[in-house]
Design a protein around this nucleic acid. Structure first.
Length: 483
RNA sequence: UGCCCUGUUGUGUAAUGGUAGCACCGCAGAUUCUGGUUCUGUUUGUUCGGGUUCGAGUCCUGACGGGGCAACCA
């Protein structure tokens, strides 16, 4: 019954990724044919009704080295099997009382060949067939036969079904029907990331994350909300390739793909995640200067915008150091930097509170450097981003980190639950000051906050509140050499 | 101690029996009003041992490593 919820979600994801499908098929549409074929197998002496319980079947299955012990019902007559199977369908038995089993090979080293169950009794409502059926085919029986009905030539699935292929082929051959070919490939893994649906479901159920579309989830809808684009994901998949060997892809490849795409598309914008007030002492109190900023240097057609500048601005706290190391290009006492698109400023005074925390910088600017270029042609190495204090608007910004704090969440030390390694700092929310230009953004739009990273307007930003999810940080060679 | 799958740079993926290539990562430079982008250069690889061959990542053989399999789940 809840099946449709997942089916619909998958359809949404596929559509969003940019794919279409010709037609939809449901295994349940084939229940009648599957039933007829099962009868056919009974008649051929290749299937029988078994009264053993689940536990008994499991107990008698043997081990890879030791053959299974035959079910006492294995040699029932065709007539009796036919009668019993029909009565199973009619609902004369309770759940689990009987099964239909294929008569294959009890000594096979492949456990799936040891008389697998084809049908079990389940008095349950089906989301498509309602209460028409009380016996349902098992995956191994339904899979190949459905493929055959649909005229499939190549049936692609993941590696864990490799051992099922002999059985897949066995049913097709026994039924003498069109033979599709099953081909397996390795699933995609990403380092530091849980990909198991079972485990992700637990994270959702137990509210470790806000839902399947939590921006930290490695789901399509999660990536989407995080700001990943279909193009980037498709590109990623293409670069990863398909093969049969197990793989673990480095997260950096995914990040490369999204940066590559967003670099071309995302409008540049200025925002300050951790504001530090700067007063330009020689800038008139009431003056408002409008400066021209380029929206996207990678895309001429994106045009320009006007950015207001005034006496009081905010800069990133990281962009000032009182006692800078050798190669620090940004603001420091006595040093000069460029405020992007605005003026060259020099820091003269550092104001601190009682605890010694820096609360304000007092700077002077070169009024002749309006636009960012000094008339005398002198060069400054550093250019930092800023926002006019008077004009800036607050925004909630969510910074995401890896959900897990171990290299491989699927390979945690013995005895620990993988959830014990959840990273408590995987979500950090800060109040940022962003340029007023962002007041009218739409949900889903992507921006690059200059020097900070790519951000996506979140679906939560309803009631006039600006909410951004950080998609991915910019590459930062300075941070790297200083870690 | 059964059967199946699989071993190519740090990662992923190519190479009719004929120069081991591509991308990411890393490193080094150049350009730059984003320490971004772009551009250039660059380190590192066929798991091991036999065999066939003029020639083996590729074929044969033996070992070793990794993964999977014993649900009335899919």
């Amino acid at each position: 019954k809840e099946d449709t919820e997942y089916v619909d979600a998958i359809k949404d994801d596929i559509t969003w990724l940019g794919f279409k499908w010709d037609a939809e098929f449901y295994a349940s549409d084939y229940f009648e044919q599957l039933y007829l074929w099962a009868v056919d197998l009974i008649k051929k002496g290749k299937a029988y009704v078994c009264d053993l319980t689940q536990e008994e079947i499991s107990r008698d299955r043997g081990t890879p080295q030791k053959p299974a012990t035959p079910s006492p019902y294995r040699d029932r007559s065709v007539a009796e099997n036919l009668d019993l199977f029909e009565r199973m369908r009619k609902g004369e038995f309770r759940d689990g009382e009987k099964t239909l089993r294929a008569k294959v090979d009890l000594a096979s080293p492949n456990m799936h060949m040891r008389d697998p169950v084809m049908y079990r009794i389940l008095h349950a409502e089906h989301h498509r067939t309602g209460d028409k059926w009380c016996i349902y085919p098992m995956y191994d029986y339904a899979h190949g036969e459905s493929d055959s009905i649909e005229g499939i030539t190549h049936s692609i699935c993941t590696l864990e079904f490799e051992v099922h292929r002999p059985l897949y082929d066995w049913f097709i051959k026994a039924l003498e029907i069109h033979a599709p070919q099953q081909i397996e490939f390795a699933r995609l893994n990403i380092d530091y990331t849980v990909m198991s649906k079972r485990k992700l479901l637990e994270l959702v159920k137990n509210k470790y994350v806000t839902g399947w579309d939590d921006p930290r989830m490695p789901t399509v809808c999660g990536l989407r909300r995080r700001g990943y684009t279909p193009e980037a994901i498709r590109n990623f998949a293409e670069r990863v390739g398909v093969a049969k060997r197990d793989n673990v892809i480095e997260l950096s490849l995914l990040e490369f793909c999204i940066r590559e795409d967003l670099n071309k598309k995302a409008a540049r914008v200025m925002g300050i995640l951790d504001p530090l007030k700067v007063t330009i002492t020689n800038f008139p109190e009431d003056k408002e200067d409008m400066l021209e900023a380029i929206n996207n240097p990678e895309d001429e057609t994106a045009g320009t915008r006007q950015v207001p500048f005034s006496r009081e601005i905010y800069i990133e706290r990281d962009d000032f150091m009182e006692d800078p190391p050798k190669k620090y290009f940004r603001l420091a006492p006595g040093s000069e930097v460029r405020l992007r698109y605005a003026y060259l400023i020099t820091c003269n005074e550092v104001v601190k509170d009682a605890n010694g925390k820096i609360t304000e910088l007092r700077c002077t600017c070169d009024l002749a450097s309006r636009g960012g270029q000094a008339p005398d042609g002198r060069k400054v190495k550093g250019t930092i981003h800023w926002v006019s204090a008077r004009h800036a608007v607050p925004a909630e910004v969510r910074l995401y980190d890896r959900l897990f704090s171990v290299p491989d969440p699927d390979d945690v030390p013995e005895g620990t639950d993988y959830k014990d390694n959840l990273n408590p700092d995987s979500l950090k929310t800060v109040t940022a000051m962003v340029e007023s230009y962002l007041k009218n953004v739409k949900i889903g739009e992507k921006y690059q906050f200059e020097r900070l990273g790519y951000f996506c307007v979140d679906a939560d930003s309803a009631d006039n509140k600006l909410v951004f999810n950080r998609t991915v940080t910019l590459k930062d060679s300075w941070a790297k050499q200083n870690q």
